[in-house]
Design a protein around this nucleic acid. Structure first.
Lengths: 129, 129
DNA sequence: GTCTCTATGTGCATCACGCACATAGAGGGA
DNA sequence: TCCCTCTATGTGCGTGATGCACATAGAGAC
């Protein structure tokens, strides 16, 4: 988030308050892997497709490219330049076998996360607020 | 996490690999609020009770106290010193009305988060890996 | 030529997090 | 008395993720 928290706002509705919109940490990593498994693509294309996973419209390109480069350094994805078509050259990415193992591990963590969040909601509900 | 990611490990099982264990960002905030709504307490007591929400055993005390202080600065909780009993004085915390509004807002965000994570798992499942 | 769209990338400031370390009261035992 | 341990509350510091602004550059349209 990087923003000023809720100390400087009077509303707490998601989307209107900087204190909200909290996501799972580093969730962009498994999101990129899943999108690339569904359909290999270049970075600019992934920006819009990330909206499916709660990343807002006009998602920061820098974030996407940084994560793609890191994943490639770690051999989780690989890429090659594509100069066909119009416009500037673009880098096409696809997931490696190591990347498939990584996203499988992420699903375990995500399942744990869902369980934890449901526990939270259950216990909050019991308060009767 | 702050750790070295998965670039320096060969395993991705949750708990054994620094790349895993990702939680919802700033989840300690609603967790502290919920624990205090369930039962007002002092910080040292909250350390162990936080395990219910996926925070490991031996959770960093500094993290708890920093968050308690911030929440108090923002009037989400309030405290008073308690010098009864043995051992050093301790600070007892309780949630303010503003804090109750904040945790309600958090539940909305948490519900959105659960939905997003379930979407992820659904789409991953359709890949047939 | 210059304007716009597509596409990839860097610089920088802020903040959460985790680890190590500091402080200190109270009780017990030698 | 001195020291040790347990309880309890903090501070310092380095690292990594994040978000915003900005830089670069090819290709087609006019």
């Amino acid at each position: 988030m990087g923003g000023g928290y809720h100390s400087d706002c009077g509303e707490h509705r998601p989307g209107s308050c900087s204190c909200m919109g909290s996501r799972m940490a580093r969730f962009i990593e498994p999101s990129l892997l899943l999108l690339l498994l569904e359909r290999p693509a270049h970075g600019y294309d992934l920006i819009s497709r990330l909206q499916d996973f709660g990343f807002g419209e006009g998602q920061d390109p820098g974030m996407i490219y940084r994560n793609l480069r890191r994943l490639e350094d770690q051999r989780m994805i690989r890429s090659e330049w594509d100069t066909t078509g119009s416009g500037p050259a673009r880098r096409f990415y696809e997931v490696t076998p190591e990347g498939r193992e990584l996203i499988k591990a992420w699903t375990d963590t995500i399942r744990l996360n869902i369980a934890t969040l449901n526990t939270f909601l259950d216990r909050f509900g019991k308060l009767g607020l």
